[in-house]
Simulated assay, not measured.
Amino acid sequence: MRMVYSELLTDHFEQPRHVGRFEADATDVGTGVAGTRETGGVLRLQIRVTNSLISDTRFQAYGPPALIAAGSWLAEGLVGTSLDQAQALTYQPIAEALVLPTARLHFALLAEDAIRAAIQDYKDKQKVYA
């Protein structure tokens, strides 16, 4: 059965934004990874923080179009937000924006897990280097 995806999901899949990676050891970078290949996909999200704001992002996704689009949409939308705003983000705005089919909702949940993990990684680094 072929999935029918929204125009926005298709756009983020075909032309993903913020693809790549930062130096993971940098003190201003937080890295979060969510998912497994066995469960359908892996999302790696990195945030660069400047003056308590997310100034830049990068992501890598290994999985189907819905996961790649969720990573791209999230990476694009996080730029300029505070850590508190990013921490409060749930899967729902991602799923709604991309009009994810019910069978693909777990990819929005992976995106939520990845941002929380990236924020925690950044905060952990600040404790070590404080």
Results as ranks from 00 to 15, higher is better:
1 M>V: 08
1 M>A: 05
4 V>F: 07
7 E>S: 12
7 E>N: 06
8 L>K: 09
8 L>N: 07
10 T>S: 08
10 T>R: 04
12 H>W: 03
14 E>F: 01
19 V>H: 00
19 V>N: 03
24 A>G: 01
25 D>E: 13
26 A>H: 04
32 G>D: 04
38 E>S: 12
39 T>Y: 02
41 G>A: 01
44 R>K: 13
44 R>D: 02
44 R>G: 00
45 L>M: 01
46 Q>R: 01
47 I>F: 03
49 V>C: 04
51 N>W: 00
51 N>F: 00
52 S>C: 00
53 L>I: 04
54 I>F: 06
57 T>D: 05
57 T>C: 09
58 R>C: 07
59 F>I: 01
60 Q>A: 07
61 A>D: 06
64 P>I: 11
66 A>S: 15
67 L>E: 05
68 I>K: 10
68 I>M: 10
71 G>M: 09
72 S>N: 12
72 S>T: 03
75 A>T: 05
77 G>C: 08
78 L>C: 11
78 L>H: 11
78 L>T: 10
79 V>F: 02
79 V>H: 09
81 T>R: 14
81 T>A: 08
82 S>C: 07
85 Q>W: 03
88 A>N: 13
88 A>Y: 05
91 Y>H: 15
94 I>F: 06
96 E>F: 09
97 A>M: 10
98 L>M: 08
101 P>W: 07
102 T>V: 13
103 A>Y: 08
105 L>Y: 15
106 H>F: 15
107 F>E: 09
107 F>Y: 15
107 F>G: 03
109 L>H: 14
110 L>F: 11
110 L>A: 08
111 A>T: 07
118 A>V: 03
119 I>T: 01
119 I>Q: 02
120 Q>T: 13
120 Q>K: 12
122 Y>P: 01
127 K>G: 05
129 Y>M: 09
130 A>P: 01
130 A>I: 00
130 A>W: 00
